[in-house]
């Protein structure tokens, strides 16, 4: 095993041409992910989390422009790789689990067909072997009577079961990286915890790297090694999970963490924390700190700059204030 990160991203930028001008959906994202590590990307809907994950997989809609200073997967330059090379990576060494289990499976084919397809596309194995592997994985994701499920169609399964099938499908080739885009959002609350636990257990067991995209900080606190907080297309704060939860530096991160109800801290019937204000428009030139419109630490310079601040342990955030809090001398 080498020490180089499995996935390394520098300056990832995504632009979407619209009739009103260019929408700068994602701007200059940097992060590294090591083998076996879990990175949680947190942010509200529309912050660019899903687009970022699709960009990593090379699954963006053709009209979206992707640029990056660096984007490598285990030494392979994802920007220079041919479509064929990317195809060989996808499903084999990096796979993805989507938000919508109800619509992410093809209604025309059986579960078995769809599970074995992944393996047959990438490995030279017999159909019988692929079938055996599918059964093995269905059992692993906690599906009973796995063998009989293979001949069922997606519509015959519940949402929770379908998401388990999606997870099994993503694991067919034992990938090194799994990207899970809000895998539990569409499910019942009781199922959500089960699925998440399953995903994390399997990740540890198979020593895979996991990028978990979520807006649920409670989940992040339990599973993340690293956290990346995304706001309006930018990573406003990144770092080890422990550091971020102990010492959230960016005003937005602080706001998010304050929104988590904690028994004991929040009084009964008290209003949960909210962050007032609206997300800025990302069409046209975007300058300064994107969070300034909602920030209680805002000063004049926020309109033009949000410099990168480094704290110990690789903990970084973007803010004019060196520690994320307003002091009188900065206002001058």
């Amino acid at each position: 095993m080498n020490d180089a990160p499995l996935l390394s991203v520098r300056g990832l930028t995504l632009d979407i041409p619209t009739s009103g001008g260019t929408l700068h959906a994602v701007r200059g994202i940097d992060f590294d992910l090591n083998r076996g590590e879990t990175l949680c990307i947190v942010g509200e809907s529309g912050s660019g989390k899903s687009l970022t994950s699709l960009a990593l997989m090379g699954l963006l809609a053709p009209k979206i422009r992707r640029t990056a200073v660096r984007m490598t997967f285990d030494g392979t330059d994802l920007q220079k790789a041919s479509r064929r090379q990317l195809r060989q990576l996808r499903g084999d060494r990096m796979s993805m689990i989507f938000q919508e289990p109800m619509t992410s499976l093809n209604p025309a084919y059986t579960i078995g067909d769809q599970l074995t397809e992944t393996l047959l596309l990438h490995k030279k194995v017999s159909r019988a072997k692929a079938r055996a592997r599918a059964i093995e994985l269905l059992e692993k994701v906690g599906i009973t009577a796995a063998e009989s499920r293979l001949s069922q169609y997606p519509h015959q399964l519940s949402g929770g079961l379908r998401q388990r099938v999606m997870i099994a499908m993503a694991l067919m080739c034992e990938p090194e990286l799994i990207i899970a885009d809000e895998p539990t959002t569409a499910l019942d609350v009781t199922i959500q915890a089960q699925i998440l636990r399953l995903l994390v257990d399997l990740q540890r067991e198979m020593n895979m790297a996991l990028i978990l995209i979520t807006h649920d900080l409670g989940v992040v606190a339990r599973v993340a090694d690293k956290v990346a907080v995304m706001y309006a297309g930018e990573l406003v704060e990144t770092g080890p999970a422990s550091a971020i939860f102990r010492n959230p530096a960016h005003p937005y991160t602080r706001g998010l963490i304050n929104c988590i109800p904690v028994p004991g801290r929040n009084e009964r019937g008290a209003r949960l924390g909210t962050i007032p204000g609206i997300v800025p428009s990302l069409v046209g030139e975007v300058t300064g700190c994107p969070f300034r419109g909602r920030c209680d630490q805002r000063v004049a310079i926020c309109d033009t700059a949000a410099p990168l601040r480094r704290l110990p342990d690789g903990h970084e955030f973007r803010c004019v204030h060196p520690d994320g809090h307003r002091h009188e001398e900065v206002t001058a």
Binding site: M57, L59, R87, Q88, L89, R90, G91, D92, S95, M96, F98, E100, T103, S104, L105, N106, P107, E117, T118, L121, H122, M166, M169
Partner: peptide, 10 residues
């Protein structure tokens, strides 16, 4: 969505 899934499979 399932077309995206197919692409994600490679």
């Amino acid at each position: 969505d399932y077309i995206r899934t197919a692409r994600a499979k490679g």
